[in-house]
């Protein structure tokens, strides 16, 4: 089904998802910007992570998910990824018993990985190539998780709360890395840190109770204090 004219890189239409029989995503529809960062926002527990996991095929889902004009909602996770999706999960999910280098090698999908870019963005990782990922600090693990996605050429990146639990200085490092990545590939970013959203996002989608309640400019949303407070619970 390649009838999409708008040629958005990632379109979600009527997406439902459930975990252990409980519906956590309800009739979610949105479209990502073809370039730059689209932020997926909402209070804790509204279903942001679940939405990403549903797109990735990691939880039971129904509805339409289109990547570059092609339906992927019936495909297994690894096929979806092979279409050019980079995924940085919530809580990093690095392989603790593998070394940094092994984590990266596992992620490489072709014979021409972007090692150069990784070295530039995360020089620290290269120095720690032989260290077990489980012994890294939280910030370093987040770098590994990001690097695992950036080491491939992707058509879209899905990034889930990359700054969660990090020191302010490291938050900026991560944000810069994302900014750099977003120059070449569109990013769907789940993020609680509004400062980071302000810095990166062009468009914002807000979920509540598993549904979309805002879909529009990120700047307008964050510029409107009352609206931000109402939708996100914070200023």
């Amino acid at each position: 089904m390649t009838n999409s004219v708008t040629e958005s890189i990632l379109t979600v239409a009527g997406l439902n998802a459930s975990i252990e029989g409980q519906q956590v995503v309800e009739d979610v529809s949105f479209e990502m910007l073809p370039v730059g960062v689209t932020a997926l926002l909402g209070r804790n527990g509204v279903g942001k992570t679940s939405t990403l996991r549903a797109i990735m095929g990691l939880i039971e889902r129904s509805g339409e998910v289109t990547i570059a004009g092609e339906r992927v909602d019936r495909e297994p996770t690894h096929r979806i990824v092979q279409r050019g999706v980079g995924y940085v999960p919530e809580d990093r999910e690095v392989f603790a018993s593998l070394t940094v280098n092994e984590n990266l090698r596992l992620a490489e999908r072709d014979s021409t990985p972007n090692r150069q870019l990784i070295e530039e963005l995360f020089p620290d990782l290269i120095a720690r190539a032989g260290q077990l990922a489980g012994t890294l600090s939280g910030g370093q693990q987040q770098m590994v998780s990001l690097a695992r996605a950036l080491v491939n050429d992707n058509r879209v990146l899905l990034v889930d709360e990359p700054t969660k639990g990090l020191a302010p200085l490291i938050v900026m490092d991560v944000a810069k890395a994302l900014e750099r990545a977003a120059q070449t590939v569109p990013v769907l970013l789940v993020e609680q840190n509004l400062q980071v959203v302000r810095m990166l996002a062009d468009k914002a989608i807000v979920l509540e109770g598993g549904r979309v309640v805002y879909d529009g400019s990120a700047e307008e949303l964050l510029g409107n204090e009352a609206l931000t407070k109402e939708l996100l619970g914070v200023a």
């Binding site: 990735m56 990691l58 297994p76 996770t77 690894h78 990824v81 092979q82 995924y87 999960p89 999910e93 392989f95 603790a96 018993s97 593998l98 092994e102 090698r105 596992l106 992620a107 999908r109 695992r148 491939n152």
Partner: peptide, 24 residues
């Protein structure tokens, strides 16, 4: 071996292995 790498990673977290594009 690469299979060995996949197996070690899969024992730890299988769904993340598939999320890296690997047919586990």
């Amino acid at each position: 071996t690469r299979f060995g790498l996949i197996i070690r990673a899969g024992v730890e977290n299988r769904s993340m292995v598939t999320a890296l594009g690997i047919d586990v």
